[in-house]
Amino acid sequence: MTAHIEVHLKPAEGALLRTLGLIQRRGFSVTEMRLESVEFGQRLHCSVVGDGRCVDLLTRQIGRLHDVERVERAAAEPWPLGVHGMAAMVASQATPSMSAVPAEARR
């Protein structure tokens, strides 16, 4: 099951690498991510999948990183146009052609 998390990173060298590395080492795959600059540091939105792994535990492990200001689980996909959004958009077009839909949206 996919979980969505939002990590507020301090403006520190290696903060992003450290956080992504931890997510992967703890048995999760990052399936989608977006990084944006904010007033103090960066905000990382990411979707993660970890079969049989506990997402709440992952957020606690991320939260203890010194580079992390705070971490939250997002209720829904944070993407303005995620995979499902893309599919809906394509479906709403007049003459949709499946070949025009990105492969991941067809799954």
Partner: peptide, 16 residues
């Protein structure tokens, strides 16, 4: 060494 040791340190710095 900063990148290499990320999994085995509590925290790390490069002093710029």
């Amino acid at each position: 060494v900063f990148g290499m040791t990320l999994p085995v340190v509590k925290h790390s710095y490069i002093i710029r």
